[in-house]
Design a binder for these strands. Structure first.
Lengths: 170, 170
DNA sequence: GGATTCATATGATCTAGATCATAAAGGATC
DNA sequence: GATCCTTTATGATCTAGATCATATGAATCC
């Protein structure tokens, strides 16, 4: 799996869910204006497209954002395991429950009106793993506003610039 | 259950999930500035706080927004049913999967930058069930902007004002 | 029936972020 | 090493939405 590879596209028939062995996959959707919106980032050990088990089609695009490999788990296997193995079933359900909480937290984050505060919250929540541009697409800001807000947070002493495109909490 | 009643508050220890028999309950969280953010609206027949089964504390406030009644389902009962009844387990898991999809769709909706387009999408998605003010808290707009955008959509002929605070798609 | 409260509306103003433009640094490719 | 592309970064300008103010209608409550 190379950077830029498409694992599946929105509206394609679902075949199963995936586990990231190495590298990184982002789930994204194209907005009305064609701009990309990042919905999820799955890194090593993480699963993605869990919901596909209950859906006929995928609801977003899965694009490789960092070279690596993934393994696919067939829908039928998941369904079978859920019926025969209560522990698996509970684990899978718990996985979805965690996602619901994460999305709620994300919606709350998006409700923060100030760019600086929103970015600070995003960094604290561990969103800033890749580029500033990618962060911007996750939190509904233009990348310019993102750079400026990061600059502002550094000026405030609330964050520290540790290099080109690298910032940490102070 | 009367309007304004609190069923539970954020950070309270979870006891179980709820089914709305009649009336309406909204799940909301207080933003940083104290402004309310509506995360969910449960109406007759709907469940809410499903995620509490997997969480030690509630993550938002549940407030009655329309008088009626609810029944509580104890966490232990749900856990037991999930272990003994595969069909129940699958149904419950599906419920969470649907929520994940809904939240993703909501995040996509929030990424629409134009107030008019965002409101139109929200109305099409069936968000506009209560007041304009309540709609505003769900889609990260001030209520003034909401009224103006609704007015604009009527001027465009894309919506129709059918009464005070009542609008429908044309 | 008067007082209170909340939702609906709209007008005026202000500002934060979008947008457009530019430029340089770094990485990949040939 | 030259070229291309992406990311980083910042400046200038513009505008959509926030904010503040005001008024009215409808519901609730004594």
């Amino acid at each position: 799996m190379q950077k830029g590879d498409v694992l599946f596209r929105q509206n394609q028939t679902t075949s199963g869910l995936y586990r990231v062995v190495s590298g990184c996959v982002t789930l994204q959707r194209a907005g009305l204006g064609g701009e990309t919106l990042t919905l999820h980032r799955a890194v090593s050990g993480g699963l993605f497209a869990e919901v596909s088990v209950f859906s006929a089609t995928y609801h977003c695009d899965a694009i490789c954002s960092e070279a690596g490999s993934v393994t696919k788990i067939a829908k039928a296997d998941v369904v079978a395991a859920m019926q025969s193995n209560p522990a698996f079933s509970e684990g899978f359900t718990r996985l979805l429950a965690v996602q619901v909480q994460q999305y709620r937290a994300h919606i709350e984050l998006l409700a923060i009106s100030s760019a600086k505060e929103r970015i600070l919250a995003a960094v604290q929540a561990g969103y800033f793993n890749a580029t500033v541009t990618e962060l911007a697409t996750r939190i509904n800001l233009s990348h310019e506003a993102c750079y400026r807000a990061l600059r502002g947070l550094c000026d405030d002493g609330r964050m520290i610039r540790v290099g080109r495109g690298k910032y940490t909490l102070s």
